[in-house]
Amino acid sequence: MAANNAGDLSTAATRQLVGGAVGAIALGLGVALLRRGFTPQTGRETLAGARTHARQKRSPLRVDEPPQVKAARRLNRAAGLLGTSTLLDSAVEHYRGSFQNKAMYTPLIVSALMLAVSAHGTRDKRPIAHGVRDATYLAAALTGIAGTGFHIYNIAKRPGGFSWQNLFYGSPLGAPGAVALSGLLGYYSERLRDNESDKIPKVFGLPAGRALAALSGVGLLATAGEAGLLHFRGAYHNPFMFAPVTVPPLAGALLGETALSRPRRPRRLTRWWLRLTALLGFAGAGFHAYGVQRNMGGWRNWSQNVLNGPPIPAPPSFTGLALAGLAALGLLEEHPDA
């Protein structure tokens, strides 16, 4: 059947182009923001590099940054980014839920603290774990796990139980997991710092690089699952909505392969695919901002559309996880057996 005539199709195409443009702008922004994180350490002879160099000179204690500290700092950045996403997302979602339960403030507080300690950690080059950071990250991980429990309980008690209706519109099952994940990444970064620099870094007795690759891979798959559920709710009305259910899962699979396979390098495909995933996270926020505009009343009706439209802070969680994956690759680069 001819569901749409040519006219409809052309407007649909125009809309997707506009969406694409907004996405592209967000992508550009993302590139700019992420450049430092992406640029391989070896090739860094930029202004930023010079600055780092200068700072190092002022601080005689720090000579060469050990690879696990480098990785730990990257992980702090990843945890911070993921934390930002969960902070904003839980703020929006729990505001939508009218903070019906006082416990709904917890992920906000914890994510905010995590953001602060992650910023601290990103700048801290000492090869030792930091007590406050450690505690905060641990608290975040526990909050995420408790939150998942709350959300499961909330869904179970609604009419219909674990039905599509409740998975779509009830407390999101996957969201607290992102808080847990960012806490875990941060906690991991602290463990990394505790390693001695000339040994193969290990965390909980596992080779750190591989374990981290596996962790971020699983995180990417889980987050893609959440995006898949919500985009299914949106009936994949725009073809770009397939991006988060194709790109990140592949990145997750590549990381899984990295975690399990024999040591080898370079892992160009994995690295580039993770970078693509990281950019996609930013692009997603752009798409979602456009989605809000496209709802009735657009941004003028923000008090409804920010809540009922696509969640703007959610997609950058892909970026956070991709950065964690890149940190794992970095570790493996220094220690192929890690």
């Binding site: 749409n4 407007t11 649909a12 709802n295 009735m296 009706n301 409804q304």
Partner: peptide, 27 residues
């Protein structure tokens, strides 16, 4: 319905739950 032991469902409705062309999702 659950208390009376019969099934229920969301009603299939002719109002969009996601954008469609120039139709925004239901507010």
């Amino acid at each position: 319905c659950e208390a009376m032991g019969i099934p229920w469902s969301e009603t299939p409705l002719a109002t969009v739950s996601a954008p469609r062309g120039r139709s925004p999702p239901c507010v």
